[in-house]
Design a protein around this nucleic acid. Structure first.
Length: 917
DNA sequence: TTCTAGACTTGCGTTCACCGGG
DNA sequence: CCCGGTGAACGCAAGTCTAGAA
């Protein structure tokens, strides 16, 4: 399809200034400057909100509570990178936001032994690319060069970068426009944007050609002059998503109400797309791979069916399967294999096919194919229920006196007691809701009337003892328990969809408990009642046997045979009966994989339209039609800052917002052209960022705010359905969330291509993690700081100081040794062994290296303490970008994807090494 | 056109399992 | 052999978006 314009497409990366950019940027000033030219138009981020750590000031701390998580950050990257960029980088970055600061560090991770073994190399080889080594080297080198440049730009530049980035779209667009022409035309959508109808398409076409293909930045440059804003230096920016550029300041913090604080900066992305023609075309895989992914999977599964294996390490899986018995083996293997083989595939495939055994249906067409029809035959065993409540008989106290409770009453009291050490205890709403529901069970005349007079500690302590007991069990006992559980659940773990055995996602019915809403949820603490068979609707193939109800004497609510949906069962949410809880297939299933692939294809399609879309909304910033103006500005924010759409919410939900539901008080204009965003988004995660925007956007926001109160809607003419209806006119199937996927993936693709230089696998992994982090920042994916984070940092400091002390001592010894004197006694007065100067020098070098590594690790840890890398990897980054990059650079895919991801992305494993998003 | 039921994706926190170091 | 630290797996809350009814 498209031609390849790859280059173009590339990227724009948006970097958000801070983070990433920082890192890279170290040097970049030069570039910046260029970029800066643009000037202001774009939005750069102004401030950096994030503090270095990421926490933003305000927000920062708030969260404490929740976090319990043990391990805070992992440190992904590190060393290598560092190496590359001199450490300096770090310093630089740090300033701004923490996040950004240091790139990653810890090499170790990357290398990790574990999985690697099996597959690793294969990939590379497969790629065929050519001789690997050499090629890679070359490429790497090349990259390096490029990289360097970039870095420079970015570096500090955050701002500058940002600016460019900021400029982003608009700028780009404009530029593009100016250029005009591109050919592209691609698709022709018909769209007209609001006012300007058809415009888009045409434009698009044009851009694409030239511009699109190239990264924005490049485009810009070329054009640069063109638009006002635009011109700015896109270069750097372009690449990065707008967001990134913006971020600079941004710190995002989650505040969750109070607690969390995190700060990351925000970022936003702008990105552009590149088009790649190929992509469309995509070639199938190298080797045999040709088989469509799905088909593969299917086949695979059938044969091997490794499903289980998924869990198991790749290498092991195979064995296991063998060992394990029947079904598992068969089913499981499949999944796993793809992975392991990394790219080999061929062989596998063949094998798989062969086996298939009972289920195979390789042929099956993918689900989506049929209109609306998701499957033809569906067999499964229903769901499993949690065990009934076992009364413990421990008495809580009321006004100091033990109280006897009926089992149902005790059950609810225990739910509360178990949460005594959580933050929820400091939330009045939680206690109030709990008490209201508990009282219903206690009855009106129960002695227990007020929560304040209750003392749940006896139950809490009993629970702690039980936990401790469990922990103390011997490993054999634990293993036995586990096996017993597995035996019980096995039959529920699998479904057979069109003849293929697939894993079921969540076959366990949720146990009763107290609702743990995030943020200031009005329903927190309410009793989530026990779900019974009569609450559950089962969906299954007509020919399949109806699952037996696991609870004797009870029966399912309803049996359906609807093949236009993918759920196997559902029940109404006890907290909000209007909503449902579904049982779906696992992420590794073909059904999910297919829809995942479609999601990324749609995002890639946006690449071909993005120029025109940006151009159109830029034009509409000054539209006379207020609705059009709001749509234009909202689209700009979604594109540049990666904001979510923002559906309307009910009063009985936490008060969070997205783009369409932003309130006047959430966006503060700071002349001349900076917008300060501060609001709680999904999961009550704070989005706090200051961004430079184009003047028309700034003016439009000021106008939208005028005459309104702080709590009024900023976009009073808009809602998500209007916005999406408009987006659909621009590109088939386009919705607000596609921009997030697009910007995330294009950023990864761009950063990987620019920053992958030579180096060993560990260094390349660091590059990947760096890119991953950038995306996480753009999408504002945060995590709370682990409770033990500060203690861990202190411990690291101590170790570093200790090493430094040892280093000094070694140096003293060395100078004495050179003079032929014996070493001084150690601090504790003991004499030390007499070492020769060479040995001492070796030891000094060793210690120095250790210190440097620890410092890098520490920096990375601090840097990532509030950034969650997993969410973007699972949901926003097209796995084909990663797989192709691994093949091109001979990085074992297992270094990047864990077992779950390998299974989930089985459909992408045979991508051509030349694939670009 | 608006509202709402319905279906599915996204996302953070917790728990689990494992691993290397003392 | 215990233990802290960690990544993976799990759990479930909270979004997005569509389609059809009102």
């Amino acid at each position: 399809m498209v031609d390849d314009i790859d280059e173009d497409d590339v990227p724009l990366v948006f970097k958000r200034s801070n983070t990433t950019s920082k890192q890279n940027q170290p040097t970049l000033e030069a570039k910046k400057s260029s970029s800066q030219k643009h000037g202001g138009q774009t939005g750069k981020l102004v401030s950096d909100v994030r503090t270095s750590n990421g926490q933003s000031s305000s927000a920062q701390k708030i969260k404490t509570v929740p976090s319990t998580k043990a391990s805070p950050v992992k440190s992904p990257m590190s060393s290598s990178k560092a190496s590359t960029l001199p450490r300096k980088a770090s310093p630089v970055r740090s300033p701004v936001t923490s996040t950004v600061k240091s790139p990653m560090t810890s090499p170790k991770t990357s290398i990790s032994p574990g999985k690697a073994s099996p597959v690793k190399s294969p990939l590379t080889s497969l790629k065929a690319s050519t001789s690997s080594a050499d090629q890679s080297k070359n490429s790497s080198q090349q990259n390096a060069a490029t990289v360097v440049k970039e870095e420079k730009r970015s570096t500090n530049a955050d701002d500058s970068e940002d600016s460019e980035d900021d400029k982003p779209l608009s700028a780009r667009l404009s530029a593009g426009l100016t250029k005009g022409n591109s050919n592209h035309a691609n698709k022709g959508l018909s769209t007209s944007i609001e006012g300007s109808p058809s415009v888009i398409k045409p434009k698009i076409a044009k851009y694409e050609d030239s511009d699109d293909e190239k990264p924005l930045s490049s485009k810009f440059q070329a054009k640069s002059n063109a638009g006002p804003s635009t011109s700015k230096s896109y270069e750097s920016d372009k690449d990065k998503p707008l967001a990134s550029r913006f971020n600079q300041n941004g710190s995002i913090n989650r505040d969750n109400q109070l607690k969390k604080s995190s700060m990351m900066s925000s970022k936003r992305p702008p990105g552009e797309a590149k088009s790649s023609s190929q992509s469309l075309v995509k070639k199938p895989k190298l080797s045999d791979a040709s088989t469509p992914s799905y088909s593969k999977q299917a086949s695979v599964k059938a044969e091997t069916k490794t499903d289980d294996d998924d869990h198991v390490p790749i290498s092991q899986r195979i064995k296991k399967s063998a060992t394990s018995g029947s079904k598992t083996s068969s089913a499981q293997q499949k999944v796993a294999k793809p992975v392991s083989s990394s790219f080999k595939q061929t062989s596998k495939k063949s094998k798989k096919v062969i086996k298939k055994s009972k289920y195979s249906k390789s042929s099956k067409v993918l689900p989506s194919s049929g209109e609306g029809q998701k499957w033809t035959t569906l067999v499964h065993n229903g769901v499993i229920f949690p065990p009934p409540y076992k009364p413990h008989g421990v008495k809580m106290l009321y006004k100091g006196q033990p109280v006897v409770l009926m089992p149902e009453q005790e059950e609810v009291a225990t739910m509360f007691a178990v949460m005594l050490d959580t933050d929820y205890m400091s939330k009045p709403k939680f206690k109030e809701n709990f008490m209201t529901d508990w009282k219903k069970i206690l009855g009106k005349n129960h002695v227990i009337q007020k929560l304040e007079d209750c003392d749940f500690t006896p139950i809490y302590e009993w629970h702690q003892r039980e936990k401790e007991k469990k922990k103390q069990m011997s490993s054999e006992e634990k293993k036995a328990l586990k096996e017993e559980k597995l035996k019980l659940e096995e039959k529920y773990m699998w479904a057979i969809v069109d003849g293929v055995k697939e894993k079921v996602g969540n076959f366990r019915v949720e146990p009763p408990g107290l609702f743990r809403g995030r943020g200031e949820h009005p329903k927190m603490g309410k009793l989530k009642k026990r779900i019974r068979p009569k609450d559950i609707t089962i969906n299954i193939g007509k020919a399949a046997p109806i699952p037996e109800c696991p609870i004797p004497g009870e029966s399912w609510k309803e049996i359906r045979h609807d093949n236009t949906v993918t759920w196997l069962a559902f029940w109404n949410d006890p907290i909000n009966p209007k909503e449902f809880k579904y049982v779906f297939l696992a992420a590794s299933s073909a059904l999910k994989g297919q829809s995942d692939k479609e999601k990324y294809e749609k995002a890639r399609l946006l690449k071909d339209y993005i120029h025109g879309i940006r151009e159109a909304y830029t034009k509409n910033f000054v539209s006379k039609d207020p609705t059009k103006r709001q749509i234009a500005v909202a689209t700009y924010l979604i594109d540049k800052l990666a904001l979510r759409a923002g559906n309307e919410k009910d009063d009985d939900e936490a008060d969070t917002v997205g783009c369409c539901t932003l309130k006047v008080e959430n966006v503060e204009p700071k002349p001349p052209n900076v917008l300060k965003f501060d609001f709680l988004g999904k999961d009550s995660i704070r989005y706090h960022n200051e961004v430079e925007v184009e003047i028309p956007v700034f003016k439009a926001i000021q106008q939208f705010r005028s005459g309104k109160k702080g709590c009024d809607d900023l976009f009073d003419e808009l809602d998500t359905s209007k916005l999406n209806a408009h987006l659909k006119e621009l590109m088939p199937g386009l919705t607000a969330k596609v921009f997030r996927t697009y910007n995330a993936s294009i950023t990864l693709d761009d950063m990987l291509s620019k920053e992958t230089k030579g180096g060993d696998v560990a260094e390349k992994v660091v590059v990947y993690q760096h890119a991953n982090k950038e995306v996480a920042i753009i999408c504002n994916h945060q995590r709370s700081v682990s409770k033990s984070h500060s203690a861990q940092m202190l411990r690291l400091d101590e170790k570093i100081d200790e090493l430094k002390g040892a280093l000094e001592e070694l140096k003293t010894d060395l100078s004495r040794a050179k003079k032929g004197k014996p070493p001084l006694k150690s601090a504790d007065g003991k004499p030390k062994r007499n070492m020769n100067p060479e040995a001492l020098e070796r030891k000094i070098a060793q210690t120095t290296g250790k210190i440097e590594k620890m410092e890098r690790d520490k920096e990375t840890k601090e840097d990532l303490k509030t950034v969650a890398l997993g969410t973007s990897k699972i949901n926003y980054l097209d796995p084909r970008i990663t797989v192709a990059w691994c093949k091109r650079h001979e990085v074992p895919i297992e270094k990047i994807f864990n077992k779950s991801l390998l299974a989930k992305f089985a459909w992408s494993m045979d991508v051509d090494p030349s694939f670009r998003f």
